[in-house]
Design a protein around this nucleic acid. Structure first.
Lengths: 181, 181
DNA sequence: CTACTATTTCAGTATCTTCTGAAAGGTCTA
DNA sequence: TAGACCTTTCAGAAGATACTGAAATAGTAG
């Protein structure tokens, strides 16, 4: 079984998916479970996950719950079976949209708000005593403004790619042209 | 000094920038140093960094070195001064390009190569004994192919945004239209 | 060459994250 | 209501990451 090429591919992918996620600040085990389910031809139960990835019941439960909260994994109930089964979202563009939307909300929004606040503070500082000259104020304002403009542009790009990316480059170009008008 | 609005903005931004980076798998201190230098009106030396962020000499040295390796920070030498000073890249789009290019190389490329390898393995598995039916082979192939197509599309988007993003949406649309043709 | 100044390295430590395993909690059936 | 079965929770353990502080290294001027 282990030297079966399909099985090799499966294990290799799961391992690397976990490593990539880990380097982007997502728990390795959570990503491995996601990969396992992404490749599974049918829903798996908690014990399947525990067995295949060699993790404890607690870890499997917690990580499956998190994946469910992200809407990357769905809980499936079967008649005459008390167990819960899990199935992954398999639309890659949908996965992308979910991940970007959530991470933006949790991990980018705070800095965006902070920058707005900083711009307000900088304006407050203009002409205040001990605040450095107007040159300093302008320098700060420039730096903050540049970051804000960048985040706004990226925001637009991601929204667009989420919406039109799956359709290919042509519709993406069309949408973008409309936005740029 | 602490209640100076400019100073408040500076400290707030440095703190948040570090937090955001930490949640994306980049060392908090490294990001704080980067933010400190990004806002500094002129180059700072190691002792400035140690003092302002309250970190040890070892940490300052290591993190500055890393930022230099990323080309997000430059080392400056002054005549009649043995000390080294540091200055940040201040072009936000350039920062973006550097970060994406490096992280792609280090943390995305491995999974891309793995997927290619998986697709090869899957083809090897076709018709092999114990490998599951052709239906299984096709299912695996589909999942891997979808991820590969996605990564290729994203690759294109990032290259494009790196090149044309700073120019605004219009040139971006123009470039994209050319690509899509 | 020596003294002086600045930078790098690294073993030990601290901190943060994630996992484990077992107990507690839920839910269904007889 | 008891018993079977499954899931969740959480205190303690393990592991990963990053920091500290001091010794080693490197470079420069006299």
């Amino acid at each position: 079984m282990r030297e079966n090429p399909l099985e090799q591919a499966r294990l290799l992918f799961i391992r690397r998916w976990g490593e990539m996620a880990a380097s982007w600040g997502i728990s390795r085990t959570m990503a491995e479970i996601h990969a396992l389910l992404y490749l599974a031809p049918e829903p798996l139960c908690t014990d399947d996950v525990m067995e295949q990835l060699e993790v404890s019941r607690g870890s499997a439960s917690t990580n499956l719950r998190q994946l469910e909260n992200w809407a990357l994994v769905f809980r499936i109930h079967r008649r005459n079976d008390r167990k819960e089964y899990f199935e992954a979202e398999t639309d890659v563009w949908q996965m992308f949209e979910i991940i970007i939307r959530e991470r933006r909300r949790r991990e980018v929004q705070p800095i965006v708000e902070t920058i707005e606040r900083c711009l307000t503070l900088v304006e407050d500082g203009r002409g205040k005593s001990g605040a450095g000259g107007p040159a300093d104020v302008d320098a700060f304002k420039k730096r903050f403004t540049e970051i804000r403009d960048f985040t706004e542009a990226m925001n637009g790009v991601f929204n667009l790619v989420s919406k039109a990316g799956r359709l290919g480059l042509k519709p993406l170009a069309k949408q973008l042209a409309r936005l740029a008008r």
